[in-house]
Design a protein around this nucleic acid. Structure first.
Length: 250
DNA sequence: AAGATAGGCAACCGCCGGACG
DNA sequence: CCGTCCGGCGGTTGCCTATCT
């Protein structure tokens, strides 16, 4: 029509976009998504990039069905925390909040249907037909129900041991100075994807566990709470990215 | 074999809170 | 302090595939 201004892309990501994103995340780290979105040339929002990375491209992600252990853990944690998916996800290395959320939804749907069916027969009380997710701030109202479900999958109560009442007071990293230095679009706007790819990326694709990533992925997934404080990854990663980026831009 | 339904998953939306100028 | 921006989170939607009838 009148304007030539391209609209932000939406919908499914192409493989090319994925590669592009992986490269630029490799270069600049998992921050400043807006910036990455701009300089990468991807016609996506920063949010969209972040989501794609976190839910799909992150090298530490597990694939495939939830294991029985994971299922138990989800039930257990949900009974304690409610719909705090990201919080729950932190206890399940390699699983994303989105994945857990999806799992829970289908799980609950199944349960609801089973109950609807069973409501006819007396094995379930009809009061548990509807499940309402507890609000994030309060404990779930139907702990009894949850407990039954845990029993269903054969959970043992030792599970509750070892979860500290989360003090995830991860303090912010003041990286903005570094960023200010490197993150001017002009400094990188000349990057072509091909250059980035050659320079930064492993040739293998898809990016799932490549040596380059294993370091950060394992660490990042496992790093939680105390460990995170002891072993802050972001700065290190950023510094290396920064150095790499500098080399790259020269 | 074909249509209907359910399940699984990726992605978007809107809100919120923290950081920063 | 206040306004703005950005990233994170939870809820929701929509599409694709598998399974059922």
């Amino acid at each position: 029509m009148v304007t030539v201004k391209e609209e932000t892309r939406k919908g499914p990501w192409t493989e090319q976009e994925d590669q592009q994103l992986v490269c630029f995340v490799g270069l600049f780290g998992e921050r400043r998504w807006d910036f990455i979105a701009k300089v990468s040339g991807l016609n996506r929002t920063g949010k969209s990039c972040r989501l794609r990375w976190v839910n799909y491209l992150h090298p530490g992600l597990k694939r495939g069905r939830m294991t029985l252990q994971e299922q138990r853990l989800i039930l257990e944690l949900h009974s304690r925390w409610g719909n705090r998916w990201s919080r729950i996800a932190r206890k399940l290395p390699g699983r994303t909040d989105n994945e857990i959320k999806n799992y829970w939804r289908t799980h609950m749907r199944k349960k609801a249907q089973e109950r609807k069916r069973d409501a006819i027969s007396p094995s379930w009380s009809s009061s548990s037909l509807a499940y309402h997710s507890p609000s994030p701030s309060e404990p779930p109202p139907e702990v009894g129900l949850e407990q039954r479900e845990l029993n269903e999958v054969g959970v043992c109560c030792c599970m509750t041991a070892g979860f500290d009442e989360e003090e995830e007071d991860v303090k912010g990293y003041s990286m903005d100075q570094i960023w200010n230095e490197i993150a001017t679009p002009e400094a990188v706007s000349g990057l072509s994807f091909e250059e980035c790819k050659n320079e930064v990326c492993d040739t293998s694709w898809p990016p799932m566990p490549s040596p380059m990533w294993e370091y950060s992925s394992e660490l990042l997934w496992k790093m939680d709470d105390e460990e995170f404080k002891m072993f802050p990854p972001v700065d290190d990663l950023l510094v290396s990215n920064y150095q790499h980026g500098r080399e790259f831009c020269n």
